[in-house]
Design a binder for these strands. Sequence first.
DNA 1: ACCTGAACACCGTTCAAGT
DNA 2: ACCTGAACACCGTTCAAGT
Lengths: 238, 238
Amino acid sequence: MVNRAATGSARAPRRKDGLSRERIIRTAIEILDSGGEKALTLRALTVRLGTGYGAIYHHVEDKGDLLATATDEVVTGVLSGVVAEADPRAALRGLALGLFDAVDAHPWVGAELSRQPWRPGLLDFYESVGRLVAALGVPEHARVDAAGTLVNHVLGVAAQNAATARLLTDGDTGADTDTDGNTDREAFLGDAAARWARVDPARYPFVHAAAARLGEHDDREQFAFGVDIFLTGIAALR
Amino acid sequence: MVNRAATGSARAPRRKDGLSRERIIRTAIEILDSGGEKALTLRALTVRLGTGYGAIYHHVEDKGDLLATATDEVVTGVLSGVVAEADPRAALRGLALGLFDAVDAHPWVGAELSRQPWRPGLLDFYESVGRLVAALGVPEHARVDAAGTLVNHVLGVAAQNAATARLLTDGDTGADTDTDGNTDREAFLGDAAARWARVDPARYPFVHAAAARLGEHDDREQFAFGVDIFLTGIAALR
DNA sequence: ACCTGAACACCGTTCAAGT
DNA sequence: ACCTGAACACCGTTCAAGT
């Protein structure tokens, strides 16, 4: 399948492709993105990279190390792409939505972030949130808690997102994910909505009503709404 | 604890202790509480219950089923113990803190809740939050999102709590957890604080300052603070 | 119906051996 | 230094066989 040195005359081509820590992590991200958390096994990595286990363990400490570094990669990559805003409120909203979108695109990141919230990948995020909270006029003694609350909101939604994605893709071989797009997703969501709608309306009126409106629901909007609630609450601390 | 037909004269004692779904789940909870998520293996269960694998699978669908049911058990048990309050704000705070305390006592619950946020164990919680949010005067169209945001805050902190607990107990055999109490915990927290304090103060002034104050930090207070921020933010929706 | 436990499939990880 | 791949320890789960 690799078919290297197909043409001829080439002298010594540096050796092979050159296995490196970066390439391993990049490949891991690809596997995670296409097949979900469950798809990332050391075996799958060796196959995809065309090497053995030891080669991977030579560049990477652990599977945990692998997952954590992959997560850092995605998070830092996205945060640097967030446009700077003058207004602290708008900046905070943009920052939060930036991370939301990243997790939305890579749901496994949500699971990993809630597993290890103190990873360096979140350092810049935390720092930015902290400064912006200060810029909002929050007194010093409340800044840490306020920033923590906002970060927690992001991580909480991220975890939820990951849970939904896991339900959608795990167990699946991922074979027909490409062919049909979102039939699976729709089927699942319909199923979930039906199950939620089945709760006793007499005993759970609120949940029942919420389930009925599940179709109109937009995760991103709900997330942004939550951010605004916290921003309003935080503004009152001034 | 049930102890039925304790006195004599009882005819056929029904057979042995009688392995039941309830007993399996109760034992699972014990293992999870004392040894953490990693300690719950089917093998450990068979040993503790003195049976084989098949016996367990006869009463329980899955390990997932086991974990989910155990989580439901803990959550519903605690929510029924929360005292009713007349003031919606106080009631919401009490409800949230009740779940926080439950997760604090059983950290594995936090991980499981963020893995499956739609479990029946959370139904009553979600319903109560929804009604109280309505009682606060939040307009109907915003209630679902508002309630969802609060639930997410609770689940987010719960997941974080679980992550910390996992770092503390997993890998550990749990042998000296009882003897020495919290030496391990203190050692770990000191280590974490030291690592956080090591971040570059020039590049990360906020995080660095936060790390310095990590000692005075109380998780429960920060959680309650977040709830209050949320409540303040929600009041503006009226 | 309820239980037993060997067997199976599949993990992450190690390590003597190669280049 | 970097890589190979058989081997190991340990999972969750199954299933023919027992009572």
